[in-house]
Simulated assay, not measured.
Amino acid sequence: MAMASPASSFHLPLLAICLASLNVMLVAGCYSSIFSFGDSLADTGNRLHSHRFDPVGRFPYGETFFHHPTGRYSDGRVMLDFIAQAIGLPMVRPYLAGTHDGEGFRYGANFAVGGATALDNEFFRSKGMEVSWTNDSLSVQLEWFKHLLPSLCSRNCSYLMSDSLFWVGEIGGNDYNHAFFQGRGVDEIKTFVPGVVSAIGSTIEELIKLGARTMIVPGNFPIGCVAIYLTTFQSARREDYESGTGCIEWLNQFSMYHNRLLLDELSQLRRRYPQATIIYANYYEAAMAIFRSPQEYGFGEFPLAACCGGGGPYNYNKSAKCGRDAGVCSSPSSQVSWDGIHMTEAAYKVIARGLLGPYTIPSISRSCPTIKWNVLDSDYKYSAQS
């Protein structure tokens, strides 16, 4: 048997110590980078770079983790941050924060923008709707990615594409939000769903043709449990509400309708492209688990009220929005809802952890066995890269 040299024997313990000290931040490395598309649920600063005076750029946004606003629609991190952390990558940099020449995007790029829709604005104008939100729809975000791609790899991008994780969504929620809050009826809005799902499917298909091999596609959250919806559609009819949660049942049924159509679309794409791993992230059930048993996850008894809000039964008032003149609760970590539309860092962390278990189909752990969710409990340090 060959004997180790004195020099190599001396360095082995030192190497082991170094590797152990890095274990919290580094995992085996299933993916070299993350590319994300979506809306405010995944936005890490794009909206703020395009709309300097958006309320998300003001305190108390970002107060819990970053201790200053970063353009995230939360008091701290969003799910994309936790996913990157668990994989062992830096937080994904917003595309609009870069120079678009590849500099700073070594570990991927985030194209998600607060307010973004799956469908282009022309669709909503054709329906006679007032369009006052961002024009950075899913198709625009895909074009950003294609513009950036040549600067990340030279002639052959197959390795980068196959070695990256693509996060496509959540997207589509704003297509429905804008319609609901402009007074459109649920029957009309249901006719939007096939088009929304088709837009998501087309984006996935184009990414696969570009070489993507692993992608996570989230469904819609239960909008009947969201404070802005609970306030807008408050009802005196007990039968409108779910008995165990207090969420509005018909709105949750709408979310489930979107998710059923999305699951059908993903099934078709899997059959068409067996070389790709398309993972469905069940945001709906991951969130409902919290709403059904909030105390089990460390939250208060009434998880439907916003932490940062302007009063009312759900602490949401459209005249007193977070980042402007709304008050903020003393303990965001015990609340599920942050500003009446988005969740707190604590809630996002619970949902992100649940994605390792029953809330991804197929499980993320199958495509990335070395993913380590215990790092979510570590003393993760924020860096300038984030």
Rank of each mutant, 00 (worst) to 15 (best):
S386Y: 11
H67Y: 14
V168R: 02
L119N: 04
V78F: 14
A281Y: 09
I34E: 03
L356K: 07
P60N: 06
D240H: 12
L263G: 10
R155Y: 06
L376D: 08
G38E: 09
V24K: 14
H147C: 01
C322M: 02
A347Q: 14
L14S: 06
M3D: 05
D136R: 12
Y95I: 02
S40L: 13
K318G: 00
Y382I: 15
D240V: 02
P362E: 12
G172V: 10
I200W: 08
G323P: 04
E103H: 12
W338Y: 14
A352P: 13
R93S: 04
R270K: 14
L230Y: 03
D175Y: 06
E205R: 12
S293E: 14
E301K: 14
S132C: 03
E130A: 08
G108L: 04
G340N: 08
W144N: 02
E63V: 13
A116T: 02
N23I: 02
P274C: 08
Y73C: 08
R272E: 11
L138G: 02
E249I: 07
S74I: 10
N315F: 06
C247Y: 14
V186Q: 04
S21Q: 15
I278C: 01
G115V: 07
I290N: 05
R237W: 03
P55R: 03
W338R: 07
P303Y: 10
I189F: 13
P218Q: 09
F105S: 02
F299D: 07
N317F: 00
G183W: 05
S8I: 15
F53A: 01
T44L: 08
A305D: 10
S255I: 15
R125I: 09
T360W: 15
L148E: 11
A16T: 15
D75T: 15
Q275T: 03
T64H: 13
L89E: 04
A347F: 01
Y257G: 04
H178W: 11
Q182S: 08
L251Y: 08
V27T: 14
S198W: 05
F192Y: 15
G102C: 11
G98T: 14
E345F: 00
V78Q: 14
Q234C: 04
E285S: 14
V113S: 03
